[in-house]
């Protein structure tokens, strides 16, 4: 029986790694392809079959080029888009975290009437499809004649704030009540309790939710496309990329778009790597009682 059993175990192990490999490829291949394409010239992109690495059409030698990146960095719209996106994403994150943590502290730790309905309302908001509010929001923004940057930051609150509030609420709720009371007896005002005791303890959750809010704002396309339609200088980077035009009319500058896509992904990857440990802590911390 024994050898049979180990054989089965080995088979299971192989199956496990096989599935892991498939998932890995499934997740990473698009990004790999973007990097690959961004390093190809127009001619290399036209090659059939497409090559897994940039190759010289004639000799077949490995021949990457940074031409696309050069063009992208020279593109004023792209550079401007990066700046706009940075401003918007950081502002959105900061606002969502400040307002979200205040709300979450109240919802998670204080007693007040109408707490349950409020929570459900917030939860319902996280499920709102963006398109449904798009037209209405556009009208509001036009009427108030808000600058596009401000209107984007404010409208991004629609999806970032409920999410940060919801996640932080469950996090605050998990913190022992005695800590709050202890601080109260020690002489802390509610606000001091909030930022000297509660906030440091929720740091992992703040990082995680903040990062997710940042990514959501950074990647957002629909609102950005709509609200910058009459103010092209406010375009965020995903919109700017969509507006890339080739040297020849109707030509898709595929290599440049890919280069821009890679460049846009890099800050997110860096952020995730920097905060990696905190994120894991934030994702799991709710599971175990403090």
């Amino acid at each position: 029986m024994r050898p049979h059993k180990t054989f089965r175990q080995r088979l299971l192990k192989i199956g496990f790694y096989f599935i892991l490999l498939i998932i890995f490829i499934y997740l990473l291949f698009p990004f790999y392809w973007a990097v690959n394409s961004s390093l190809k010239t127009e001619a290399q992109l036209q090659m059939t079959p497409a090559t897994m690495v940039p190759r010289d059409p004639a000799t077949g030698e490995f021949a990457p080029t940074l031409q696309n990146y050069r063009v992208v960095f020279d593109n004023q719209q792209f550079v401007r888009g990066i700046m706009n996106s940075t401003i918007i994403a950081f502002s959105t994150t900061a606002l969502a975290l400040v307002a979200g943590s205040f709300a979450a502290f109240a919802l998670g730790k204080l007693r007040f009437r109408g707490k349950k309905p409020t929570l459900y309302l917030i939860l319902a908001m996280t499920m709102f499809p963006q398109v449904t509010v798009l037209a209405g929001l556009y009208a509001v923004i036009r009427t108030l004649s808000l600058p596009a940057l401000i209107s984007l930051i404010l409208s991004y609150m629609i999806f970032t704030l409920p999410f940060t509030t919801w996640v932080l609420t469950s996090f605050f709720r998990g913190l022992p009540m005695a800590l709050l009371e202890s601080a109260q007896v020690d002489g802390a005002t509610p606000f001091q309790t909030f930022y000297k005791i509660m906030l440091p303890l929720t740091a992992p959750a703040l990082v995680t939710t903040g990062l997710l809010a940042f990514i959501a704002a950074w990647n957002e396309y629909l609102f950005a496309l709509t609200f910058t339609s009459i103010e092209p200088t406010a375009r965020t980077v995903p919109v700017a990329i969509a507006y890339f035009t080739g040297a020849v009319a109707r030509q898709e500058p595929f290599g440049e778009i890919m280069a821009a896509a890679v460049l846009v992904t890099v800050p997110i990857v860096i952020l995730v790597l920097v905060f990696q440990r905190r994120i894991v802590a934030g994702l799991t911390a709710g599971a175990v009682k403090g």
Binding site: L179, E181, G187
Partner: peptide, 28 residues
């Protein structure tokens, strides 16, 4: 509570986990 001039010891201690013991004692 802060103006009652009392101190309380809780069942689960309720120490502030992110502070050192010195800071815990000094907090008040």
């Amino acid at each position: 509570p802060k103006d009652r001039d009392i101190a309380m010891v809780f069942q689960n201690y309720a120490l502030y986990p992110h502070m050192t013991n010195y800071e815990n004692m000094a907090f008040g």
